[in-house]
Amino acid sequence: MSEIPQDGQPVGRVPLATNRDVARARKAVGAVMDEGRARPIQKTRFVTAVSEITRNAIVHGGGGVLMIYAHALPRAISVACRDEGGGIENVEEAMRDGFSTAGSLGRGLGGAKRLVDAFEIESTPGGGTTVRMMSRT
C-alpha cells in the first residue's frame, strides 16, 4: 500500500451532518473521478469506500467534513474525512471485518481499506477521527 502524496489540489468539500450527505459525498467524488476519466471499476471501488467512511463519520463520529483532492503526478484522487466524534479506542480492532460499536455489520472501515490504493487513519480518543484514502485514476 502506497503513501498519499501531499501535493493534492483541493477540488471539493462536502459537510457531513445527516445521512443524506453520504449520497452527496458519493456524488461529489464520482464527479471528480468522471472528470479524471477514471475507469468504471476504479470509480465504483473508490466511491464505495468513500460511502463507507463518510457514513461512519456521520453515524459514529457525529458528523464532520469530507475534503476532496486531485493529484497530478501520478494522477490520483484522494479524500480526507474528518469527524469531531469520540475517536476510536482501538483502531486495529475497528479495522477488522465484523467489528461494530453501533449495531451495524462492521464491514465499513476494513472493507474501505481493501478498495483503495492508500489508506491512513488517525484517531485520538476524545479528539475525533480522520481517514485519508487515495485511488490512482
Binding site: P40, I41, K43, T44, R45, T48, D97, R107, G111, R114, L115
Partner: peptide, 14 residues
Amino acid sequence: MRPAVAMTLVELGM
C-alpha cells in the same frame, strides 16, 4: 448488477 459493483461487493465480503 454492474460488473464493477459485483466485484466491489465480493471484495467487501457481501
